[in-house]
Amino acid sequence: MSPQLFQIICFYAFGIVAVISALMVISMRNSVHAVLSLVLTFFSVACLWLLAQAEFLGIALVVVYVGAVMVLFLFVVMMLDINHERLREGFIKYLPVGIVVAAVMLVELLALIGVKAMHANTMGPDPAAAQGLSNTAWLGQAMYTQFLLPFEIAALILTVGVIAAVVLTLRHRTGTKQQNPGDQVRVEATRRVRIVKMEAERRQQESQS
């Protein structure tokens, strides 16, 4: 079997798994199963990226989304006790709106593909391979030289997002008890226990007799 043929077979296999698991995300009745289908979708897309020689992006997708974001998702979903029957309510009501949104997205995608095809902007050779670098090294160099400003702006936006999320949920309650670990470490025995010296006492009867 030639490597190209095997690559194409893998591409379609990963693609089919990604599409089916994406469909399962919205059709599963159990929300934990839906989250797990999303994990499978991410994983197959990461495999597709690996096929396209984008090894850094592919593995970073697994580390960030599968390893961290989806774990937090699962964390929240596990705590919910959703009534499965209620989930299907309003399906018919929202169906027309959903179809309109889907149709608009399809038209936009087709238009985008058409524009790209008109410009015949085919991708050149792999820039990393052309320079004889590994994918990660090339990506790092491009990001910290050519695209430094967009990269820094993206980092700033994310930082603002983090701070905003913390500020929105931060509430100072009164009457909470907090520990100060520094104080706990610095504590001395004399501040906690007072040792009192006193004479031994005799029982009442013994002293009388």
């Binding site: 934990v32 797990l36 994990v39 090894e55 850094f56 593995i59 970073a60 697994v62 580390v63 599968v66 390893g67 961290a68 774990v71 699962l74 964390f75 596990m78 590994s134 994918n135 990660t136």
Partner: peptide, 25 residues
């Protein structure tokens, strides 16, 4: 001997937690 070996290790070790979470649920 892959180029992104450390990244692969991070990905694999972070996947292990799914076993624990799903077992609990």
């Amino acid at each position: 001997n892959i180029n992104a070996g450390v990244l692969y290790l991070l990905a694999m070790t972070s996947l292990g937690v799914y076993g624990i979470i799903l077992a609990g649920w």
